[in-house]
């Protein structure tokens, strides 16, 4: 049950976009059409579900203070936490590369539709952010995987919803200074307000 709750919290309450403002850059840049937003959202769900557990393993067995004792008891005092950023970002970059190759092999159609978005994900703050939050929150590996999936799916929902609104918005009169980014920010604020309604839900 706890596992589902973590995923649910990641999707609705601790939504990457509305609660933590992570992944905003691609959220704003790629939300002009539903189709592309769908592709990016899917790629994010995919990569997050994989990287968070992998980074968990890394943190637990390599980086944490005393984590290296499984090699030898004398490594107990080694604390490699200061390497965290570099290691996590390296894992993310290589996972993205790996996912790209796998998708290209297995499903050329999906690969074609994801296109440029896959490599871009490496520098999406939502990915690194989830890994860092995962460390802060002290999950075990299953919880970490469900957290990764949840936050990815939350991003997916948010970006598709925003893209749909922006498609409709093309036909409305927006003051010229507010066009594009400005009105998008205001809409995001209103959507965040709506997502606030989910606070407190649990299975």
């Amino acid at each position: 049950m706890e596992v589902f709750n973590i995923a649910l919290r990641g999707i609705f309450i601790d939504n990457m976009i509305f609660a933590y403002y992570l992944g905003m850059c691609s959220f704003l840049a790629v939300s002009k059409k539903v189709e592309t937003a769908f592709g990016l959202g899917l790629a994010v769900v995919f990569v997050l579900t994989l990287t968070v557990p992998v980074n968990w393993l890394l943190q637990e067995y390599v980086l944490k203070e005393g984590a290296l004792t499984w090699i030898d008891g004398s490594f107990e005092s080694i604390d490699l936490t200061f390497l965290q950023f570099i290691m996590f970002i390296a894992v993310i970059a290589s996972m993205v590369q790996l996912v790209e190759m796998i998708i290209e092999k297995l499903s050329p159609a999906l690969y074609g539709s994801l296109g440029i978005f896959l490599p871009l994900i490496a520098v999406n703050c939502a990915i690194l952010g989830s890994s860092l939050f995962m460390v802060q929150k002290d999950y075990n590996i299953i919880e970490a995987a469900s957290y990764g999936f949840g936050s990815g799916f939350g991003f997916f929902l948010a970006i598709i919803a925003l893209a749909a609104i922006r498609e409709k918005l093309k036909y409305s009169m927006v003051p010229s200074g507010l066009k594009g980014l400005g009105i998008t920010m205001l809409i995001t604020g209103l959507m965040g307000l709506a997502f606030k309604a989910f606070i407190g839900i649990a299975l």
């Binding site: 933590y20 403002y21 200074g177 980014l181 400005g182 920010m185 307000l193």
Partner: peptide, 17 residues
């Protein structure tokens, strides 16, 4: 978090105008 979106949205509006 909502405050941030709204303030930034208005700021962008002013700056771009």
């Amino acid at each position: 978090s909502i405050g941030a979106f709204v303030v930034l949205g208005i700021l962008i509006w002013i700056q771009r105008s």
